[in-house]
Write a protein that binds this DNA or RNA. Structure first.
Lengths: 249, 249
DNA sequence: CGAAAATTTGACGACTCTCAAGTCGAGTGG
DNA sequence: CCACTCGACTTGAGAGTCGTCAAATTTTCG
């Protein structure tokens, strides 16, 4: 039934900027980038791809799975970002040399790498590609800003709802089917660290969403058929994701 | 006494990436960028330079003063970033076309603009300049990540302390003298909106810092001679600002 | 001086944290 | 198949942080 024709690895960059207005970014740029990438690599859960302060010489694209950006302090972990397939994980390190955070897999993951040297050549030869790569890092920044707003504006149940609403939108952009079930490898502790609350309180927040009938979260998966209500509850507005639909207002 | 020789406007980009490892970014690039910029413009307090969703055709550098990045929701304002002189305010709009947030002056401000068209020419002709501009937006993102961590990890007094510690570091990089007094135009309501707490609670947090002897905040200005203690209290680590000193760990 | 804005204080309730204990679930060895 | 075990999840209680409402005080500025 499946596997007769496997196109999933035909283009490593298939999901890169998928669902976005790629603008003057042409197929040829994508193919060139694709050709520069190394072989896909599989990594297990909990693998640290990059540590804060490491000097980077390659950039990594996420093909499958989830990766968390974390900052540690006094033994506690704080999650400052989530990557989904199609994201360059450490492209910030191309210009910054080092990252200010760790990158850790959440669940099994597949990635592919491209060297900074090749990236430098490609970007100098292809302005559109350079623009697209820049664009993708600005997208990260826009998501960061939304997370800041969420932490400033929302309580715990709303933050968790917003997180899943965002993942729903981002995964939809890359063609995942998340109509009624959004599966993730996240434990409630992971959710807590992403939302800036204690694990115990995250549990109560999950219970609250269940009470409200907005969704049921079990072992990382959110089951719901009320996405609109969930989004409204979280104050979710997809503008900041710069999807190819309408502008942000 | 003043004004005999005014060098402050000789280079509009004087503070751009000042204090950072500008790397292969050469003086010639700076001068070229400088030449492309329009005349400086003065703006009053509370002026909105850019509204969320506006289609941008220019980029703006901040010459003097402070500008807040804000997101609004249900009539409430949330501050997601602060700009100091030398920052490009809306460079994200160069690749994104629109911004996901508003940019509003806090106190009197001076800016200068450069058109996207000129910027496009410059960046395509000068890879180093393109890299430097990209770098500066990644710096914004790194600051965003730190703010996320702060909101996740710190209580109100610590958040305010961290904010001033960050401003101290950023202003020092561009040569401001903030040895014992850091002046800002921020009201306690501004501080509250930056830290994700109510204005009343921000007031209590300010009082707490005074009680602890870490500093006195009056009309936006922080008076202290205990910067080290303030930084320790806030868990401040300058690595994320990518100053030209040491790496982030 | 007088109006408006900013700051301060008090009271009470809501949200969230920590400590402690108990339950559930998947995988292991007998 | 059952007992065991470890991690994840759940629940309860008490305390700390923070939000809101209300009102007083101080500062700014026309």
């Amino acid at each position: 039934m499946q596997g007769l024709v496997d196109t999933s690895e035909q283009f490593l960059t298939r999901d890169f900027l998928a669902g976005r207005q790629r603008g003057s970014f042409v197929t040829e740029d994508l193919q060139t980038l694709d050709a520069a990438m190394g072989e896909p690599v599989a990594l297990p859960d909990g693998h640290r791809l990059v540590a804060r302060g490491d000097v980077l010489t390659t950039a990594t694209i996420l093909l499958e799975g989830y990766v968390l950006a974390t900052i540690h302090r006094d033994g506690r972990r704080f999650v400052v970002g989530v990557h989904v397939p199609g994201n360059f994980l450490d492209l910030h390190g191309f210009a910054l040399t080092r990252l200010d955070h760790d990158l850790v897999t959440s669940g099994p993951v597949r990635i592919a790498r491209v060297s900074h040297d090749q990236l430098r050549e490609l970007t100098e030869a292809r302005p559109h590609l350079a623009r697209a790569l820049w664009f993708s890092t600005l997208l990260d920044a826009a998501i960061h800003r939304q997370w800041i707003r969420n932490l400033e504006a929302l309580d715990a149940p709303q933050r968790i709802a917003h997180l899943f609403a965002e993942l729903h939108a981002r995964l939809t952009m890359i063609g995942h089917n998340v109509a009624r079930t959004l599966r993730t490898p996240f434990t409630q502790t992971d959710l807590a660290d992403m939302c800036g609350v204690s694990a115990i309180h995250a549990n109560r927040a999950v219970a609250r969403l269940r009470e409200l009938g907005l969704g049921e979260i079990r072992r990382g998966a959110l089951y719901t058929d009320r996405w609109d209500d969930l989004r409204a509850y979280a104050g979710f507005d997809a503008g900041y994701l710069y999807g190819e639909g309408q502008p942000s207002r």
